[in-house]
């Protein structure tokens, strides 16, 4: 495992270095005080930062490794400089914050304040992304992904402080509606809706039954998903089964839960959350 990571980092850093010299021809604004040296190299260094950060983040999630998640976050922050990609950079910073918050919360209540800070930061980055006037071809995809993630972030904030349900619940629902209009078959949109339904108290319109239906539909859509651009998000397939398992556990259906967790590991054998935390709960 370490070797894979090492290779990944080498790759990443080399890319970054190449990036410096090329970036000046790229679209991002440049510090006018700087003089630069011309050189020929890849065209989209910020995109490479994002792709690499994405991989490090996924590794971090699988290995339950906060350090990697923070490292990924720092990489995404650096990519913010490229204005053309800044909506995606904001998205990935928020995704890292969301993952970090979930990881912290899984470690216990003592991290609640710290996790809340990450969630707040995630919401701010996503809100910032929605304010960007995006002229890219994938503007619709960005918007759908941003809305879906923001809705999940709100959902997590509600689960920490139920009071927020009053304000964030409707907002979250509204965002999902927008996301569904833009990309009805985006599996992460469907997953976010289902997580939202699962975490929201009944008082604010949550429903465990709707959640399970949603996880099942998301699982089907993930199986069909074929990413077209390396910077587009691909996370969520294995996670969908983890959530489905959690929803079954909530209904005391241990067998269904176990098979869902096993399915999650089939898709991503490195999913640490399932391997070390969820599956042991149903095999005891």
């Amino acid at each position: 495992m370490q070797y894979i990571l090492l290779a990944l980092i080498v790759f990443l850093i080399i890319l970054t270095k190449f990036g410096c010299s090329v970036a000046r021809e790229s679209t991002y604004e440049q510090n006018s005080d700087l003089t630069s040296v011309e050189s020929g190299a890849p065209v989209q260094p910020a995109a490479d930062l994002l792709t690499s950060g994405k991989n490090i983040l996924q590794q971090g999630i699988n290995e339950n490794n906060l350090d990697a998640m923070y490292a990924a976050r720092a990489i995404f922050e650096r990519a913010l400089t490229d204005k053309n990609l800044s909506a995606w950079s904001h998205y990935y910073i928020a995704l890292a914050d969301y993952r970090i918050a979930n990881n912290l919360l899984a470690q216990g209540k003592k991290n609640k304040d710290r996790a809340s800070k990450h969630l707040k930061e995630a919401a701010e980055h996503l809100e910032e992304a929605t304010r960007k006037d995006i002229t890219r071809e994938d503007a619709k995809t960005i918007a759908a992904e941003v809305y879906a993630l923001l809705s999940s972030v709100y959902g997590r904030q509600i689960s920490l402080s139920g009071i927020k349900g009053m304000f964030l619940g409707p907002k979250s629902g509204n965002l999902l509606k927008k996301a569904e209009q833009l990309a009805p078959n985006n599996p992460r949109v469907v997953l976010s809706a289902a997580i939202g339904a699962f975490n929201t108290p009944k008082m604010w319109g949550g429903s465990k039954e709707r959640a399970i239906e949603g996880f099942q539909r998301a699982a089907y859509l993930f199986a069909q998903e074929k990413p077209t651009d390396p910077i587009h998000p691909i996370w969520g397939h294995s996670e969908t089964y983890a959530w489905l398992g959690i929803a079954y556990m909530d209904r005391d259906e241990e067998d269904s839960a176990r098979s869902a967790f096993e399915k999650a590991l089939e898709i991503d054998p490195d999913n640490g959350w399932v391997k070390y935390e969820l599956l042991p709960k149903v095999t005891e």
């Binding site: 970054t16 410096c20 991002y28 440049q30 510090n31 260094p45 650096r78 400089t81």
Partner: peptide
């Protein structure tokens, strides 16, 4: 990071 660049 150097402000305005990707170097860092």
């Amino acid at each position: 990071q150097i402000t305005g660049t990707l170097d860092g």
